[in-house]
Amino acid sequence: MSTRQPILEVRNINKTFGSVIALADVSMDLLPGEVHCLLGDNGAGKSTLIKTFSGVHKQSKGEYLFEGQPVEFDSPRNALDMGIATVYQDLAMIPLMSIARNFFLGSEPKRKVGPFNLFDHKFANRTAREEMSKMGIDIRDPSQPVGTLSGGERQSVAIARAVYFGAKVLILDEPTAALGVKQAGTVLRYIVQSKSKGIAVIFITHNPHHAYTVGDRFTILKRGRTLGTFTKNELPREEMVRMMSGQDELEALTHELEEFRHSDDLKAAGQSTEIDQQLARGS
């Protein structure tokens, strides 16, 4: 894996918002055709990192290389044009618009009729159907509103759209977070399919099982720093589950609670003796 050239790489990047350090000395790289999971607790810097990748933020320090060349993005559209597509959990789709209209929003297919440039509905409907069926979702009617789709299907349309418009890097921000087991499966299946097309995927999730099922490598962030990147072999499932479910913290918490209980017991015991004494005194 290490012999391939990374499609996207950041070296020692820092990002500060005023006095808040969101990212400190973070390095990671992304290879074509891999699913790279970005793991970490809330506030670990995952969002800041992917927003840097997708052109929303600019790093304060450090290098950002795309296909080996240093890049600087002014806007998300800029990054999108280079082939870096981001699918956000909530901002993916417009519910009242049809699937086909959503699919092509901003990049409408056109058909010239006389002096007019028409929106090519036939092409849009056909393509949306085809692209969705490639990922195993059969849409009967691409002109139905996206609002009638399930959450997983909506995410899938967003991903299919990014892939269709030539994404080389696909950044997925918790695409399975709000989904049921079956729907999450739909999305995970499509992540693997995108990977097999040679697309590099950055996959953010809180679910260790989702991460371990599709991930090739795992980068773990904690408090704005990276704890390193691990391959599947280097990071056994149990170890990752332990890290992601915060087992250490949970153990510490259990310990703490036990101490509380202990002191409560002591107090309770002390109080009861006081009461007993009072009762005994007859007051």
Partner: peptide, 19 residues
């Protein structure tokens, strides 16, 4: 209904940020 601008108008009203 038939042009790109029409699609933009629906998109704008549906979700400005997404558009």
């Amino acid at each position: 209904l038939r042009t790109q601008i029409g699609n933009w108008i629906f998109g704008l009203g549906g979700d400005e940020t997404a558009a």
